[in-house]
């Protein structure tokens, strides 16, 4: 069962029209030709800098932004949906099966609703429960799973700390008993001690409720500890994807290497050792030709400027999109 693919995307693109007028617009490709497979019951990590398209990809898989190219399917063994052509009924049902956890637990919860009402809202909006009693039962059950005190349900969010608020957000996302969760920077706004607590809770819930996570984060150490499989994005493209251990033991794309190298090490003696990436991620409205990373890559050659590399298999499930990855193995 655990080898089943829950979400599968092939050549997925999300484009936005920008500029004025019918004839003068151009297309901004936020996600460009991305193919991924997310195994059921896995923790799939998605990393990259701001502007890499990781949030847009997550939203596209939730059908919250329109997919403009390629295919995406969802198959949980119960239903099988083509995410690019959902009927109205199917979309309603998919909303129940796929949910989102937000970054900022201060902005995500309405200050005017009690915790009980916040958690119950998805059930009521999607008409999942038929009586108030049933709703209350579901709310109490999920609140207990998320380690919320039952007497907390009568209070308003302002009375809670960041960690407690994030547990309320998680309860709200899980109350409809979804299969697939997109957690978009779900621990980025939390203090480290609380971050550890929330990560442990997500892991525990995944096991108990048979959940599949897409975990979007800019924090590579969090991803390394949480995810089974990691995909690295740059300017809308997937540049490398591999099982977590394989990726962290031997990153192959120069961008992945640079990202790892930029993580501030806890060892004070590592100062000045890291290789630095020059410049910033280019604007998606003015994308470089060829390999999108060539403007910042320390190993750029002429071919990189003209020809875009495709993902190729490096080692089992480890794939990389770089013209020179094999040569660079020798350089280190």
């Amino acid at each position: 069962m655990s080898d089943d693919i829950l979400i599968s995307a092939a050549g997925l693109s999300v484009g936005y029209k920008i500029g004025k007028g019918i004839f003068q617009h151009s297309i901004l490709k936020a996600v460009d030709n991305v193919s991924i497979h997310i195994k059921r019951g896995s923790f799939f990590g998605l990393v990259g800098e701001s502007g890499s398209g990781k949030t847009t990809l997550g939203r596209a898989l939730l059908n919250a932004v329109p997919i403009t190219g390629g295919n995406a399917t969802y198959d949980d063994g119960d239903v099988n949906y083509d995410l690019t052509a959902l009927s109205k009924d199917e979309l309603g049902d998919y909303r129940r099966r796929a949910q989102l956890i937000f970054q900022d637990p201060y902005a995500a919860l309405s200050p005017r609703m009690t915790v009980r009402d916040i958690i119950a809202e998805p059930l009521e909006v999607m008409k999942i429960t038929s009586s108030r009693q049933e709703t209350d039962e579901r709310v109490r059950e999920i609140a207990a799973r998320c380690r919320l005190n039952l007497e907390h349900l009568r209070r308003f969010p302002h009375a809670f700390s960041g960690g407690q608020r994030q547990r309320i957000s998680i309860a709200r996302a899980l109350v409809s008993r979804p299969q697939f969760i997109v957690a978009d920077e779900a621990v980025a706004a939390l203090d480290v001690s609380i971050q550890a607590d929330v990560l442990n809770l997500l892991k525990q819930l995944q096991g108990e409720m048979d959940l599949t996570f897409m975990f979007i984060s800019h924090d590579l150490s969090v991803v390394a500890h949480t995810c089974d499989h990691v995909a690295v994005m740059y300017l809308g493209r997937l540049v490398e994807t591999a099982p977590t251990r394989q990726l962290f033991a031997a990153p192959k794309h120069p961008y992945t290497k640079a990202l790892f190298s930029a993580i501030p090490s806890l060892n004070p003696d590592d100062r000045g050792r890291a290789q630095r990436l020059e410049g910033e991620i280019p604007s998606p409205t003015n994308q470089p030709s060829g390999c999108k990373f060539h403007t910042r890559c320390p190993h750029v050659i002429d071919r990189c400027r003209s020809e875009e590399p495709q993902l190729e298999t490096a080692d089992g499930a480890h794939e990389v999109a770089c013209h020179r990855w094999q040569e660079l193995l020798k350089v280190g």
């Binding site: 700390s161 480290v192 001690s193 609380i194 550890a196 990560l199 924090d219 977590t244 806890l266």
Partner: peptide, 24 residues
Amino acid sequence: RGLLAALPRLDDLDAPLTPVPGDI
């Protein structure tokens, strides 16, 4: 010690993340 134990470390991916219990 609690702050350091709660930190995900890249040099030891198997180490459990230990939160400081409770809230401030």
